[in-house]
Design a protein around this nucleic acid. Structure first.
Lengths: 340, 340
DNA sequence: GATACGGATGTTAACGTTAACAGCCACCCA
DNA sequence: TGGGTGGCTGTTAACGTTAACATCCGTATC
């Protein structure tokens, strides 16, 4: 014998409840809500009234199950406390919300293993599409995703082999451009401060090295890299240590604005003249950069646009189209300010 | 005649696929994954191998549908770009993740109508519990939620009538405490800068008024309130305007740290001595407050703990318990620093 | 050696919705 | 007046999973 009917004190109203109240069949209620033009106006109005009265909310699980379309997109980002990714999310949301896609945000914490675990969990929602940050995902994950035939677009970076859909800009080119700017300004002992050391930071570092090597003045001992989480305090302590170990440095390229603001704070408190004694540059152009004293030279990154374009591309893929351009380079802008 | 079987080129593996490969029934596979101790070791191992080989991912919709438990919690917050709520989310996540609850984040954008719309959408996921920011939700929404019997916990504020589950602190008491601090320091013409004007900002303003009225020196014309979005730039422009209109002000209570940092920046650039000519105080104690020049006096808010405690309370409610204390006041701390 | 017990596995139905097709009926046109 | 047309509504089954029993079989018990 099958299980007993539930004896819940109360349960959420279903299509059948609404249908019973109005005196029609469930499918008619479904149509009244999803394809109103296929239901006569009189019936539709009575249905909508009943829906309101009963507080009916459609059950997404049932719909997903039967229609095999979840209207859901999974977005994995490394951090929620980094404005960069929040801005990206805003771009994504602005594209997907009008199309009634639900966004499931996964926070990987810059941890590859956790990213894989998260993705696996989120796949159980049967998403219609996936947005990933970076291109570092393991081969295992790749073949696994391929098996499921769910469209995937990568954000922030570019695929050197152009084999995956991606929207971003060359972190390395940006790193090189900022370094060249410092060289043009006459600085010769340019340090690099890197924290967290994720994919993007290492690419910026590569750009820094490339620029200095081309100028023939690259020195390995002017790089300070730490896996610690970035922050203003960390920037301050890094510059303190760096100036002690290598007093000859006359410029610092910080892998992000937080570190750079910490460096500026330290300089201000210790009477180090910026940009005369020390030039300081950051990366991302966060809100604080233009308001620091002195104002901070940095790279403006098109993060909102990346989210927007990536979501648009995903939308395209989800409707079965093949985007004309599988790789979109949205570039970056050098914001030269007082600190250099 | 019913619909034709689908002719998908490929589909995600199901329990039946795994079962067929191993030569057992679907329910055994289900048990091997959910209650492994109820399946013999030999069979379990073969099942896990097949799961791996086929890349099987359980279908959450089907599970939710049949078990009427979605293992999902909806969290509505006003903004993703405000560190306060991100910290709260971290606390929530740290509690719910170990219990394998999925978190659905909804961003209301400080908009009550949007909040109601979002909630309705998210209810279609049949969440097991809901976390809301603030207590401002409309009566309509309340009765509606009551009807569904889904546990709800409110965060950040306290319910004066103690009729709802909530975890937070008294924004008004915090506002009063900070204002009293300024009075103790000898300031007499204390201005209030408010932006965005959400529930919490208005409560802080109420605390500010209360403290000044008690001291008998409240002046309505020292309040600058704007619905604009908060930010460093806004703080700078507000202080410029305020000093022009009411040069006698000798202290500013900013409704959040962003505005206060803007005020500090303006003072620094215009040679206004802080705290001699003008005292500046913020609210929240964000990362930047301790690194500003001068360091910023502010209220440290227990936002991580609020998320943590609210999620714990919700967990309790979701397992059918009644929390001993339906209202948790986590209080706040005054961080007196150089700027006052 | 019959009986009870319990661990392992299976069978059936149900969750709430929508796809696919099947009526039904009013209306129009020849 | 008969046949076709089109708008509206209904019937049935299916999506993938789990709850609730049912069954089987080996082992312990007296």
């Amino acid at each position: 014998m099958p299980r007993k009917p539930k004896e819940r004190a109360s349960r959420a109203a279903t299509l059948h409840d609404v249908a019973a109240q109005v005196g029609v069949s469930a499918i008619t209620v479904s149509r009244a809500l999803n394809t109103p033009e296929r239901v006569s106006e009189a019936v539709r109005e009575r249905i909508l009234a009943a829906v309101d009265a009963l507080g009916y909310v459609p059950n997404r699980s049932a719909r997903t199950l039967v229609s095999s379309r979840s209207q859901t997109v999974v977005v994995l980002i490394p951090s929620l406390s980094n404005t960069v990714f929040i801005d990206t999310l805003a771009g994504i949301n602005d594209v997907l919300d009008p199309h009634h896609y639900q966004i499931l945000i996964g926070n990987t914490g810059y941890d590859d293993a956790r990213e894989e675990r998260l993705l696996r969990t989120y796949l159980s929602h049967a998403p219609d599409g996936i947005l990933l940050t970076g291109l570092r995902q393991s081969d295992g994950m790749r073949t696994w995703l391929d098996k499921l035939h769910i469209p995937v677009v990568h954000m922030m970076g570019l695929d050197p082999q152009a084999q995956r859909y991606c929207v971003g800009f060359s972190q390395q080119a940006a790193g090189a451009a900022l370094t060249q700017h410092l060289l043009q300004r006459g600085y010769r002992n340019v340090a690099f401060f890197g924290a967290r050391l994720d994919e993007r930071v290492m690419q910026r570092a590569a750009g820094y090295r490339q620029a200095l090597q081309e100028a023939g003045i690259y020195r390995e001992d002017l790089e300070w890299l730490t896996p610690e989480h970035s922050g203003i305090g960390l920037g301050a302590s890094m510059i303190a240590k760096a100036l002690q170990q290598r007093p000859e440095i006359d410029a610092v390229f910080c892998c992000n604005d937080d570190l750079a603001l910490g460096v500026l704070t330290y300089c201000q408190r210790n009477g180090i003249a910026v940009p005369q004694r020390l030039a300081v540059a950051g990366f991302n152009d966060l809100d604080g950069a233009a308001w620091a004293t002195p104002t901070l030279t940095t790279i403006r990154t098109p993060r909102y646009d990346i989210g927007h374009a990536a979501a648009s591309m995903l939308l395209d893929l989800m409707s079965g189209n093949t985007p004309a351009e599988p790789m979109q380079d949205l570039s970056f802008t050098l914001q030269a300010r007082e600190s250099t």
